[in-house]
Amino acid sequence: MSTISTGNQKRLNRSFTGDLFLTLFLAVFAAFMVIPLVFTVSNALKPLNELFLFPPTLLVRHPTLTNFADLFHLMSNSWVPFSRYVFNTIFITLAGTAGHVLFASAAAYPLAKHRFPGGRLLFSIVVLSLMFSPKVTNIPNYVIMSRLGWINSYAAIIVPAFAASLGLYLMKQFMEQIPDALLEAAKIDGASEYRIFFRIVMPLVKPAWLTLIILSFQALWGTSGGSFIYSEQLKPLPYALGQIIQGGIVRAGPGAAVALFMMIVPVAIFIVSQSSIIQTMTSSGMKE
C-alpha cells in the first residue's frame, strides 16, 4: 500500500509538459549522436552512384557489398596486403588488452585488500595520472622507447598499454567490495595469496574484467601507431583507413567499408558487456 502511495506522489511531482519536453530533448540529442553512425553504416552499403547523389540521402536505397569487394581488390594490389593491417591491429589489441587485464588486476588486489608500506602512495600517484593525458608524456616516451630499442615494434604500443592507469583504478575500486571474511576464510584454509587471487578474487570481479577489456580494447583498436611504428608492414588498420580516405572521391566506397569495420567491433563488445560495465562503474567514485 505504502509503495503505491509514494508512486502516486512521485507522479504528482512530474508535470506532463515537463516530461514531454524532456523526452523531446532526449530524442533530439539521441539523433545528433546516432545520425553520424547511421551515415557510417549506410555509406558502407551504398553503391557508388548513391554515395554521390544530390541531395545526399541518409539511408541506403539499394544496399550492396560492392564497397567491401572494392576494398579487397584495392588492397590486394597494394604493397602491404590488407590482411596484414588487420592482423596488426588485432594482434596489438588482443595482446595489449590481455596483459592489461592481468597486470592491472594483480596490482589492484593488494592495493584494495591489504595495507602495506607504499601502497597508498602508489595509488594516489595512479589517481594523479588520471588527471593528465598520456599526450603529455609522448616525447619522453619516444626517448625511452628508443633507449629500449622498441621503436618500430609492436612492443612500443603493447607494453605501455599493460600499465594504463584507468584500468587499475576501476579494478581496485571494484575489488574493495569483496567481503574480507571470504578472503580470511581462504587464508585459514591454507590458501596462498596467489591462490586466493586467481581462484577467489578473479572469478568474483568478472564484471570489472569486461570493463577493462572494453576500455583497453577501444584505445588500442583506434591506435594508428603514431611515431612509434614506421614500417608499413607493422602499421595498424586506422593508419590504412587514413591512407584510403586521403585517396579522395574514388576511395569513398572502400573508405566507408573500413570505417564500418572499425566501428562495429568495439560497439559489438559493448553491447554484450553493457550491464557488467555499469556494475563496475558503480564503484568508480572517488573517495574524499
Binding site: 593488494p110 591489504h114 601502497g119 595520472s129 619522453p140 607494453v159 599493460f162 600499465a163 595469496e193
Partner: peptide, 30 residues
C-alpha cells in the same frame, strides 16, 4: 611490514614497474 607483505609486492611489481617506466618517469624526464 614490507617483509610480511612480500606477496603483495610480487603481485604489484609487474604493473608498478611499467607504470613507473612509462608514466611517472616520462613526466620527470619532460
Amino acid at each position: 611490514e614490507a617483509k610480511k607483505h612480500r606477496h603483495s609486492y610480487v603481485l604489484l611489481a609487474p604493473y608498478t614497474i611499467l607504470f613507473l617506466l612509462f608514466t611517472v618517469l616520462p613526466v620527470l624526464i619532460a
